[in-house]
Simulated scan of single mutants.
Amino acid sequence: MDITLYLHAMTGLLVIIDPIGSALIFNSLTSGSDQKYRNLMAIKSVLISGVTLILFGNYGEALFYHLGININSLRISGGLLLFYTAFMMITQELKFAKTEKDADISVFPMSIPLLAGPGTLTLAILLFSQNTEGNSVVSVSAAIISVLVITLFAMVTSKYLKKVIGKTGDEILRRFLGVILAALAIQFIYEGVRNITM
């Protein structure tokens, strides 16, 4: 396993998935529900997101290749999409309305668009494409699993997390992570432009 790629993937995924922010949204969507339902929704959300990210990350590049799309074009467009996501994280307030009691929220909105949205899927493809002697699959998959385990823990304990961090803490954290994601997006754009012009 490539530790450098694993840490790079971990950083990017932690920033865009934002386990604490996702957990606070999860808490607001499941408030008033019993712990069994909350645990079930958390586990289903993480499993669906993990399978989606790993499958799309592994086979997304091949799909784009068959469509005639160069990986460097994907880096540039993916970087622009991630930058837009970062911009929205920094400038806008993220809100989701509470659904009816005990409705299945595992696919929408928890998995898509929160945990495995367009930005995360693009990031997964870009990370899996950084093939260092075949180690990218293991390294990036391990990073995805690690981040989703952290997210699962945050969602299961979101009642207590909400009391500790509060709305103000979440706002500060989300905007700080948005700045990091913007820098990561610019790096992807830079690499795409550099490789196309070489």
Rank of each mutant, 00 (worst) to 15 (best):
L80H: 00
V140P: 05
L55D: 02
S141P: 09
A142H: 01
A143R: 10
Q92S: 15
T168P: 00
L67F: 10
D102Y: 13
A103R: 10
L184K: 05
G68L: 04
A116E: 05
N70M: 01
I76M: 09
F188I: 02
K101Y: 09
T99A: 12
N58D: 03
Y59K: 03
T91G: 01
F96N: 07
L63D: 04
K95D: 08
A154L: 08
A62L: 14
N70C: 00
I105W: 06
M88C: 02
T168F: 13
I180T: 09
A62K: 12
A97W: 06
L177M: 14
I71A: 03
N58E: 12
F87Y: 13
T122P: 00
F176D: 02
D104H: 04
A154E: 09
K159S: 15
F153P: 00
L67R: 00
A143F: 08
N70Q: 05
L184G: 03
F56D: 02
N72T: 03
F87I: 06
G60W: 07
V137W: 13
T132S: 13
F87K: 01
P118E: 13
F153C: 11
K101S: 10
I112L: 09
G68S: 03
F83G: 09
N58K: 11
R75Y: 14
A86V: 01
S77F: 07
F108S: 14
A185E: 06
P113Y: 06
G117C: 08
F128N: 06
F108M: 05
G68Q: 01
F176H: 07
S146W: 08
G117I: 08
V179A: 13
E133N: 15
E191Q: 13
L127R: 13
V156G: 05
A124P: 09
I69R: 03
L74P: 01
A185N: 07
T91Y: 06
P113C: 03
S106P: 07
K163R: 12
I189Y: 06
G78F: 02
T157W: 08
Q92W: 03
M155G: 04
F188L: 10
A183Y: 03
S141G: 13
V156K: 11
V164L: 15
L121E: 10
L63Q: 01
L173C: 10
A185H: 02
N135D: 10
S129K: 12
G78L: 00
V138E: 11
E61K: 12
V137A: 14
P118Y: 09
V147A: 08
L81S: 05
L63N: 02
T120V: 15
L81A: 06
L123H: 12
S106G: 04
A154N: 12
